[in-house]
Amino acid sequence: MKYIALIAGLLLFSCQSQGNDKEAKTATQEINYQELDTATFAGGCFWCVEASFEQIQGVVEAVSGYAGGDKESADYGLVSSGRTAHAEAVQVYFDPSVIDYETLLEIFFTAHDPTQLNRQGPDVGSQYRSEIFYHNEEQKQLAEAKMKELAPDFSNPIVTKMSKLDGFFMAEEYHQDYEEKHPNNGYIVNVSRPKIEKVAKKFKDRLKKN
């Protein structure tokens, strides 16, 4: 009975249980900001990662979506089953004159636990894996160097994967800015908010001015 109660509690506050697949899905689209640079990260539920980055100066937009799989199966109902190759990911559009990729990497490794394999807290499955989708060779080299630099900060080995980005597919509209739209949601309060606040505390000098 205790095991059943534990599972029920995890589902109550899991990223997967909060989505509504009956809501209308927007067409997959690419956001093109000509003068900005782009980074793509996966670190568990995309609501947490998106909101962690959007509070940072120099981040113009953070978009929730899917990476690591094909366009045809880039659908929340399929991805959340864990049977596609996708990870819930966030595409970060940033101004390189304000913030650099190395700082984004530091934020990424603060916003989630890179030592957990195929899970983040209550969210379990390969779709919640830790992964850096690099856009070019420079990003790959910077990410490899940053992982080596930060490895001593963690008691367990970093298991973050690294892959060349083949495609990013924007998630359904109701996933975008989820934390901002639903601040009192149980998952947001209990899972997302502590991660967002952890980033805000560490990078307090880089927060956007209200």
Rank of each mutant, 00 (worst) to 15 (best):
Tyr101Ala: 03
Asp100Val: 05
Ser81Asn: 07
Phe108Thr: 03
Ser97Pro: 00
Val98Phe: 01
Val79Met: 05
Gln91Arg: 13
Val90Phe: 14
Gln120Lys: 06
Asp95Ser: 12
Gly121Arg: 08
His112Cys: 10
Leu117Lys: 11
Tyr101Ile: 00
Val98Thr: 14
Arg83Ser: 15
Asp113Cys: 01
Lys71Gln: 13
Asp75His: 15
Ala111Asn: 09
Asp70Pro: 02
Leu104Glu: 01
Glu88Asn: 09
Ala89Glu: 07
Asp95Trp: 03
Tyr93Leu: 13
Ser81Val: 03
Val90Thr: 12
Gly121Ala: 01
Ser81Tyr: 09
Asp95Val: 11
Ala111Met: 00
Ala89Cys: 07
Gly69Tyr: 03
Gly69Thr: 09
Arg83Leu: 14
Arg83Trp: 14
Ala87Asp: 10
Glu106Val: 01
Ser80Leu: 08
Glu102His: 10
Leu117Met: 14
Phe109Asn: 04
Glu88Pro: 06
Glu88Ile: 06
Ala85His: 15
Pro114Leu: 12
Ser81Thr: 15
Thr115Ile: 09
Leu78Ala: 08
Gln116Arg: 08
Leu104Arg: 05
Lys71Ala: 11
Leu105Asp: 05
Ser73Phe: 01
Asp70Phe: 04
Arg83Tyr: 15
Gln91Cys: 08
His86Glu: 08
Ile107Ala: 11
Asp113Arg: 07
Glu88Leu: 05
Tyr93Cys: 11
Tyr101Val: 01
Glu88His: 05
Arg83Gln: 14
Ile99Ala: 08
Asp100Leu: 05
Thr84Cys: 04
Phe108Asp: 02
Leu105Asn: 05
Asp75Ser: 14
Leu117Ala: 14
Gln91Gly: 04
Ser73Tyr: 00
Asn118Ser: 09
Val79Asn: 06
His112Asn: 13
Gln116Glu: 15
Asp100Tyr: 08
Ser97Asp: 14
Val79Pro: 10
Thr84Ile: 01
Tyr101Asp: 02
Asp75Arg: 15
Phe108Ser: 02
Thr103Ile: 13
Ile99Lys: 07
Thr110Leu: 11
Thr110Arg: 09
Ile107Val: 13
Asp70Val: 14
Leu104Thr: 04
His112Phe: 15
Ser80Gln: 12
Gly82Arg: 09
Ala111Arg: 09
Ala74Phe: 04
Thr84Phe: 04
Asp113Pro: 11
Tyr93Trp: 12
Glu106Pro: 07
Glu72Thr: 12
Glu88Thr: 06
Ala87Ile: 00
Asp70Ala: 06
Glu106His: 12
Asp113Gln: 11
Leu104Trp: 04
Ile99His: 02
Val98Leu: 08
Val98Lys: 12
Phe109Pro: 03
Asp75Gln: 15
Ala87Phe: 00
Thr84Ala: 07
Gly82Cys: 12
Asp113Ser: 09
Pro114Ile: 07
Ser81Ala: 10
Glu88Asp: 06
Ala87Pro: 02
Thr84Ser: 07
His86Ile: 04
Gly77Glu: 13
Ser80Thr: 13
Lys71Cys: 07
Lys71Asp: 06
Ser80Asp: 11
Asn118Thr: 04
Asp113Val: 01
Gln120Glu: 10
Gln120Arg: 02
Phe94Trp: 06
Tyr76Met: 03
Ile99Thr: 13
Tyr101Glu: 02
Ser73Asn: 12
Gly82Thr: 02
Phe108Leu: 03
Lys71Leu: 07
Leu78Thr: 10
Gly69Met: 02
Ser97Phe: 05
Phe108Pro: 06
Phe94Met: 09
Phe109Ala: 00
Ala111Asp: 09
